[in-house]
């Protein structure tokens, strides 16, 4: 049997991974539509949709990159489980959490071990989720006095494992590996094109590894070069897990400024209030990076007031893994007076 997409019966969790035939949902933004007043006044017909990446089997947009990374390692024969005559070779990867959770979940099913190197400031829920998914987790001590050019951190530690223990570990490296971009060229882009009937005019996303923005923009711009690609970045010194300010982008080799029409900066605290608004006003349990992207979309649309068009905003993951971050930035949520 293979997947029956109408009854949603699958042979394995891997069949649930998103693609054009089995896309993650697009949900219309209603109450919080940034142009609600213009629409009511009849001066705009702009439609805005959220693409709910948390509906992917392991809970985030990173299921796409992770499945491509694993597939590539398997095709190259670079990873294998423990065997009677040969020790297994697994994966080591620097991750803010989501890529690691997806990689660990898929690797575990295949009997392959996975080690995730995470920065200290990653929320506790993600560290525990990584262990639940079967990963060994190394939590880094954050630099005591960060300074430009140091940047060894998670990447350096993962590299150390891959270099010192190459018989046990390979690093797919989501920050450099084109498979991360290809995943979005092959799946996210075509899904959006089909789901919007080619009517998309604005695409809103964030910058992490930049796999999403580079892959989706590559696909959409080839279909229609007038589609606006808008990347939303948090203000410097931010505390929004999974994404980067432009000063932190040197870590990734997948960023391609020529594909992006605008990078809009949002005060990072807004990620949290915006996510809360989406939870309470739209019933969309969006995490902080989705909140940030939505706030960026709101700022652009209220500034430009397009009379027509269709926007899609990536909602990277949901809020459940960010309870500690949400209560830190919105203390009232902890229920204390």
């Amino acid at each position: 049997m293979s997947a029956n997409l109408s009854t949603r019966v699958f042979d394995s969790v891997f069949e649930m991974l998103p693609n054009e035939a089995n896309p993650s949902p697009l949900v219309r933004i209603n109450t919080l539509h940034p142009l609600a007043a213009e629409i009511a006044a009849g001066t705009s017909t702009f439609e805005l949709f959220a693409k709910l990446e948390w509906m992917n089997p392991f809970g985030s947009v990173k299921d796409r990159a992770a499945s491509y990374l694993i597939r590539e390692l398997e095709a190259k024969g670079a990873i294998w489980p423990d065997k009677a005559d040969k020790k297994g070779r697994g994966i080591v990867e620097p991750t803010s959490g989501n890529t690691g959770i997806s990689l660990a979940a898929m690797a575990s099913v295949k009997g392959v071990h996975m080690r995730a190197i995470v920065p200290e400031k990653v929320p506790e829920e993600k560290k525990v989720m990584l262990r639940i998914a079967g990963a060994d987790v190394d939590v880094l001590t954050d630099a005591m006095c960060p300074s430009p050019g140091m940047g060894e951190g998670a990447l350096g530690m993962a590299r150390s494992y891959a270099k010192a223990q190459g018989d046990r570990y390979v690093m797919p490296n989501q920050y450099e590996n084109h498979a991360n971009v290809q995943a979005h060229i092959d799946t996210t882009g075509p899904e959006i094109w089909r789901q919007t009937g080619g009517k998309i005019t604005h695409f809103f996303t964030s910058l992490g590894t930049c796999g999403t923005v580079t892959g989706v923009a590559t696909f959409l711009k080839a279909k229609n070069k007038n589609i606006k690609i808008i990347a939303v970045q948090p203000s410097a010194g931010h505390d929004v897990p999974g994404i980067r300010n432009k000063d932190e982008l040197h870590v990734t080799k997948l960023f391609d400024a020529s594909l992006i029409d605008e990078i809009i900066e949002v005060p990072f605290e807004k990620a949290y209030t915006s996510a809360l608004g989406l939870c309470q006003r739209e019933g969309l349990f969006a995490g902080p990076s989705s909140g940030l992207i939505f706030e960026g979309a709101r700022m652009v649309l209220q500034r430009d007031k397009p009379a027509q068009g269709l926007g899609v905003a990536i909602f990277c993951d949901n809020v459940f893994k960010y309870i500690s971050s949400m209560t830190k930035h919105l203390p009232a949520l902890a229920g204390e007076p």
């Binding site: 880094l140 001590t141 630099a143 530690m157 150390s160 270099k163 010192a164």
Partner: peptide, 11 residues
């Protein structure tokens, strides 16, 4: 090291 786990990963 500042982060004493670095040595264990490789040295």
């Amino acid at each position: 090291d500042v982060d004493t786990k670095q040595y264990g990963a490789g040295h």
